[in-house]
Design a protein around this nucleic acid. Structure first.
Lengths: 180, 180
DNA sequence: ACCCTTCAGTTGACGCTACAACATTCGCCC
DNA sequence: GGGCGAATGTTGTAGCGTCAACTGAAGGGT
């Protein structure tokens, strides 16, 4: 079957899009590293843990929320544990599994890093878009995600069956509101 | 000044978008490596060179077209040269500069790799989008690029002052039509 | 009870990228 | 025409991610 090449509009779109995809991680990483000594991925790991009421997740679950492979996560968590931001302990219910928990120090680091991160996200992405484009981007990202990520999960770890009052100081710190 | 956190819609959009940004490079890389033994970035380098009438570009220009830092490009081109896909020679007009030229073997490799790449781009991205969304994505990507890339250049190396007849077999092979 | 498959996670080796230091050349100004 | 800052690349190092191999435990069938 003959290759269906991209037409001019698709071609132009692809070039811009791929440029964003290649450059954005670097931008986020650089800001994060300079202001907080973390990788953007480190930040993601801490943020996902922070959204769980117990600040604890199993490695596989954490890998899912952060869109990472298990080996990658394992290496990162080991390094984070070495810095005292996270601690690991075997899961009581399944001896195969490992739980990762955010330490107080990890929490503080995350809270300190969040404002700078949000500012970057706003400044480099959302401020460049109209409200209408934000809605469009959501739809586009979801659509692509449906293809490249089999069991796409756009939700958050804390979004499960958790009574609202339980959140308390454990409120999420991704790019949302910080705790009081 | 108080941090302006992301509202719910922005938050949800960001999560999906960042997931795409983190996952897409891996998808492109994996396909490329399995089918052609190239990195996606390798492919980009070869493709950009292929669009020049002389199949030759200066390192700095090539770095610009591929959105790469100069050190990164230097390493990649050295490896590509070792595989005989590219050759380097000093620029006659400026003794500081280095020219990179696509070899015949590099051209063949690129042409062989292009169909699989385009199929992946179609299958994983464009097939998931409506024609309307493609237009939206172009605008969004351009807008973000304007922020994260100072001197954003969405054009191609061959788009300069070149008489059409000059292209011949040197027609571009990025995600567009291949040579006859 | 036993085996076999699958699941959960870790580890080690290799490759690629960012960062910083360096060498060389150009352009300019006086 | 000599010196100085900027531009063009290259190289070395360190850090991170991927891949494949491995350990150990759970689940299921017979």
């Amino acid at each position: 079957m003959a290759t269906r090449w991209l037409d001019d509009e698709e071609q132009a779109t692809w070039r811009s899009f791929i440029a964003v995809v290649e450059l954005l991680p670097g931008v986020l990483d650089t800001q994060m590293r300079h202001e907080s000594g973390l990788t953007h991925f480190d930040y993601l790991v801490l943020a996902m843990l922070s959204e769980d009421p117990q600040r604890t997740l199993r490695m596989t679950a954490l890998a899912g929320w952060t869109n990472a492979t298990l080996p990658r996560l394992s290496h990162v968590v080991r390094r984070l544990e070495g810095r005292g931001l996270v601690e690991r302990f075997p899961c009581p219910e399944d001896a195969r599994a490992t739980n990762a928990r955010l330490t107080d120090r990890g929490w503080d680091t995350l809270v300190a890093a969040a404002p700078g991160h949000v500012e970057t996200v706003r400044g480099q992405v959302f401020d460049a878009l109209t409200p209408e484009q934000v809605g469009q981007l959501a739809g586009i990202a979801q659509a692509i995600l449906g293809r490249i990520s089999p069991g796409g999960r756009p939700l958050s770890p804390g979004a499960g069956p958790v009574s609202p009052g339980q959140r308390g100081t454990a409120e999420a710190v991704t790019t949302g509101p910080a705790p009081a």
